[in-house]
Design a protein around this nucleic acid. Structure first.
Lengths: 145, 145
DNA sequence: TATTGTTATACTCTATAACTATA
DNA sequence: TATAGTTATAGAGTATAACAATA
């Protein structure tokens, strides 16, 4: 990585990529007891935050292809966690929304996943937590690029 | 997420988990032209950093089960990027090491992945890059916990 | 014609269980 | 007996290509 060391910005890119990858894998390793997979949970989280969405919107949000989202959504339907309804004015579209069970599940799963991370953050200093909070905004910018 | 809003630390955990997950997915979406998958590249990266490792060590490093790593390593062997040799003193173990082609490939792939992120970081302010650099250390601490 | 979603099919990554070889 | 690795098998997630329904 000789060329990276020559450019501080490229070196930061390398370090950030590694750190984000490692942290992401570690966080995802903390699965909820409900047994929901990461993609399944993410769909519930989107619906919880943005309300009812179409499969196409969900696929775009997760940057996956529509057929993949169809599969994930259908799995959640079978679990009774989401509902598929006809779009009121466009017969081509489908509206996916949380069922009461899905709304409860997303809250519980998110809570279980956050418990571990919350405990970790609580052990940090206030200054360190502030650094991470600042990074959150920048990481979102990275993700949106 | 009523309970999260009541605790600033838990709220930060929730935001950090989301931001890290999104950034990680976005970064991984930048694949090298060589077509290596993320697990394949990660194994090459481990070998590049730590030198020869056994499949068991690689599995532990990536927090996956040994059979999964066997598959990934075998794929890399077929590509001519790593080599499997007998352990000098323990006949049960196998030593996986980079071939010259693998060493070149890991450098090139890593470089291609970093190009995109470097361009993004170059567009940020120096202060923002400093924030991310500070976060790198903390993210490593998260990953190691 | 263009858009939305699904079905069909295949590939990758992962896991658990059972097996082989060696310590 | 315990350990390291593999093989067998299965499940989940993703993709592309082709199709159906609707705008």
């Amino acid at each position: 990585m000789t060329d990276l060391r020559a450019d501080p910005v490229a070196e930061l890119a390398n370090e950030l990529r590694t750190a984000v990858g490692r942290a992401s894998r570690r966080i995802r390793a903390e699965r909820g007891a409900a047994g929901l997979s990461d993609p399944q949970f993410t769909v519930l989280a989107w619906l919880d935050v943005r309300g009812p969405m179409t499969p196409g919107q969900l696929a775009e949000a997760e940057r996956i292809q529509p057929p993949s989202m169809t599969r994930t959504v259908n799995g959640l339907v079978e679990l009774g966690l989401v509902r598929k309804d006809e779009h009121p004015s466009d017969g081509r579209q489908v509206v996916v929304s949380l069922t009461p069970a899905g709304a409860a599940e997303v809250r519980e799963t998110r809570h279980r996943r956050d418990v571990w991370l919350t405990g970790l953050l609580a052990a940090m200093t206030e200054a360190e937590r502030a650094q991470l909070a600042a990074a959150v905004t920048l990481l979102h910018r990275v993700a949106a690029s």
